[in-house]
Design a protein around this nucleic acid. Structure first.
Length: 340
DNA sequence: AAGTATCTCAACCGCTGTGCG
DNA sequence: TCGCACAGCGGTTGAGATACT
């Protein structure tokens, strides 16, 4: 039996929305709130699919939307974000207040992609991206962070064995990446970064699993790596330089990368991993209450693009798991490496 | 002025993960 | 454990607007 359509197609209106329909939808949502999109058209008296109502509201009718042209600052930010996150329009949009993913996607397709393909521009990160092997494409569908509440986590003894996570626990698998064969530098660069480790909260940052399978920074110095930053690693023009050593920190040399179908002792080439496709959204699992996606992403962005001096100062006082001061010169090198 | 090409962007489509019975 | 409904995502379409010949 095939799946039922999202709404009854017969009798449903399609195409442009009229001002009257907009008013009906706006009035209904202001009275009843968002949600229950499937039943909304019937309750509101609209001959529209629930999906269509949702899209119309989110992309056009919401009061917090910013109208007008994309500013040069926004333009610049979109380019930078796209170079890091690719076509993850919802992530990009979340950092442009008042802009929707659809709007940004359209803007990119109609303005920026063409602009960046012209002959007059300076080389950008996009050049690097285009010359590099394609990163594994994000699978379509609903995979937003907020929707990806952690449900199960691997145990330390067996990563394939899953136990249920508590709501307020930080749950991060461990991945080590090796850059140009220099694991130590890579670890230092990445683990010292709040971008990668999300070290704004106690318990985040260089970490490992305790016997209970939960993140425990005291166990070892391995790092937690943001999947999006890892995605960015795929965008390098020297993909062979990046290797994944391990998923499970307790047995670095002999365990296999998370999501890889083939067991691999030691290093796994990034390109073969791309063939297997690893959904890094799933690799990155966060606790519900301690982790603030927006806040963390803001941290990522300030670090990558603006250089948040205040945060940098506060982190200057930080130290790694071994009590050594963090090396921010190397962190800056990492930023330059990602953006160059 | 008319015909054609190109561009823009609102809306649609198909797919997938989550939640729940 | 399974199957369904729902929500949300990225990709694509196509009507209307604008530019060009």
């Amino acid at each position: 039996m095939g799946r039922a359509p999202c709404c009854e197609k017969v009798g449903m209106k399609k195409g442009r929305w009229t001002a009257e329909e907009d008013q009906i939808l706006t009035d209904y949502i202001q009275s009843n709130g968002e949600g229950s999109w499937r039943s909304l058209p019937k309750n509101a008296g609209l001959k529209r699919c629930g999906k269509s109502c949702r899209l119309r509201w989110i992309n056009y009718l919401r009061s917090d939307l910013k109208r007008g042209n994309i500013t040069p600052q926004e333009d610049d930010l979109i380019v930078k974000l796209h170079s890091t996150f690719g076509s993850r329009w919802s992530i990009i949009a979340s950092n442009l207040p008042g802009r929707t993913d659809n709007e940004i996607k359209n803007y990119w397709n109609s303005h920026l992609s063409r602009k960046l393909h012209g002959n007059f521009r300076k080389p950008t990160v996009t050049d690097v991206v285009e010359n590099a092997p394609l990163p594994p494409k994000r699978k379509p569908g609903r995979t937003s962070r907020s929707a990806m509440k952690p449900k199960f986590i691997p145990t330390s003894k067996n990563p394939k064995s899953l136990i249920k996570a508590n709501k307020n626990e930080i749950v991060l698998p461990t991945t080590i990446i090796e850059i140009n064969g220099d694991k130590e530098d890579a670890l230092m660069d990445l683990s010292s970064s709040s971008v990668v480790s999300g070290a704004k909260e106690p318990g985040l940052g260089p970490c490992g699993y305790g016997d209970d399978g939960h993140c425990n920074p005291s166990i070892n110095g391995d790092l937690c790596i943001n999947d999006d930053i890892f995605d960015a690693c795929f965008l390098l023009n020297e993909p062979d330089a990046v290797h994944v050593s391990s998923f499970e920190s307790n047995n670095v040399e002999n365990s296999e990368p998370y999501g890889s179908s083939s067991a691999s002792a030691g290093h796994e080439n990034i390109e073969s991993m791309a063939d297997d496709f690893i959904d890094w959204d799933l690799v990155w699992r966060e606790g519900e209450t301690l982790w603030d996606e927006k806040e963390d992403l803001d941290s990522v962005l300030s670090w990558l693009f603006q250089g948040d001096e205040k945060e940098s100062e506060s982190r200057q006082k930080d130290s790694n798991d071994f009590g050594e001061p963090l090396d921010f010169e190397q962190e800056n090198k990492m930023a330059a490496w990602l953006l160059s």
